[in-house]
């Protein structure tokens, strides 16, 4: 297939996944910030929402402090934010339009339909009262796009490149969440326990829709090292780094098989996958949670560039 087509499929999936993550992270912040000050912790939850979105710098060029209003507006629709939810949908639709012939009609309909609805919703006029409904709509849309891809696309390179986009973006989102929140999960905080910590920990899980999963997997009250285990190493959890890499490797292998040729993208991804599989959560904490995450983010970016130079240009 055309490199440009693969590129558009990859990016449209990334944008939809990013919009989904932003919606979840705004929801989590809104929930946490509605608790009494003592429970919400010292950190400003809106500050960390904008940080985990990777947009702290651009945000602070325009705003002094991070409040519910400024951050939610910024993450949802601010024209100053190149990766706002609205911008993500626009970019996804631009990419989809550029490769219409590679999409099934169901996928096109899911993306174009959402874009049309968005024109009618007028997101810049939304008030905090409208957010929950809007954010639910965003998550539903990403489900529809994802579901239509899963149910209708031929299992060929077009499908594999779009799945790669989802997994690479997802790994990046989970890792950035951990990068901003890691200190809450450090052992020195674990001894405290209680309602305050519970709310903080639960917020992390909620941001990736993993609170219920946690209980099913561990059948335990919230423990910070288990939260880290769930989000980093547990392959059952679809947003964990390990699960993302499982999927990245599988899709890269499919591509290599179809093209009869593997390259740096396959090698780099496999190395990360192997390492995640061989690591125990205790080791992660011993060698430093923050260092681990920082290294992972850099590695994940390397895989992204390798995919790009091997196939997309």
């Amino acid at each position: 297939m055309l490199s440009r087509t693969a590129d558009s499929l990859y990016w449209l999936s990334r944008y939809i996944e990013r919009a989904d993550y932003l919606a979840r992270s705004i929801e989590a912040a809104q929930r946490l910030s509605s608790l009494p000050a003592a429970y919400a912790g010292e950190a400003n939850e809106w500050e960390s929402a904008v940080e985990t979105a990777g947009s702290g710098e651009i945000f602070h060029e325009k705003h002094e402090t991070a409040t519910a209003e400024t951050v939610a507006h910024f993450l949802i629709c601010s024209p100053d934010n190149p990766s706002s939810i609205v911008k993500c949908f626009e970019s996804a639709r631009t990419n989809a339009r550029a490769v219409r012939t590679a999409l099934t009609s169901e996928m096109w309909d899911a993306i174009n339909g959402a874009w049309l609805e968005l024109q009618g919703l007028n997101p810049s006029k939304l008030t905090p009262r409208d957010w929950p409904k809007f954010l639910a709509w965003v998550k539903e849309t990403s489900l529809r796009v994802d579901g239509s891809a899963y149910r209708t696309m031929l299992r060929n390179d077009a499908y594999w490149f779009s799945r790669l986009g989802v997994s690479v973006e997802r790994a990046d989102n989970t890792a950035r969440l951990l990068d901003v929140k890691y200190h809450i999960l450090l052992p020195e905080n674990a001894t405290v326990g209680g309602a305050i910590d519970y709310s903080q920990w639960a917020a992390i899980l909620r941001a990736v829709s993993a609170l219920t999963s946690y209980h099913w997997v561990y059948r335990e009250s919230l423990k910070p090292w288990l939260i880290a285990d769930l989000l980093i190493l547990n392959t059952q959890m679809p947003r964990s780094l390990a699960a993302c890499y499982h999927s990245i490797v599988a899709n890269l292998d499919e591509i290599a098989g179809a093209y009869n040729r593997a390259g740096p993208a396959q090698r780099t991804a496999r190395a990360i996958h192997r390492q995640l599989g061989a690591t125990k959560i205790e080791q992660v904490f011993q060698s430093g949670l923050h260092e681990f995450i920082t290294t992972f983010i850099a590695d994940n970016n390397r895989v992204g560039s390798a995919i790009s130079s091997q196939y997309l240009v």
Partner: peptide, 13 residues
Amino acid sequence: ADKMGVELVEGRD
């Protein structure tokens, strides 16, 4: 392009 099953290319492709 879709109905013919041929690639839709731009100049840069």
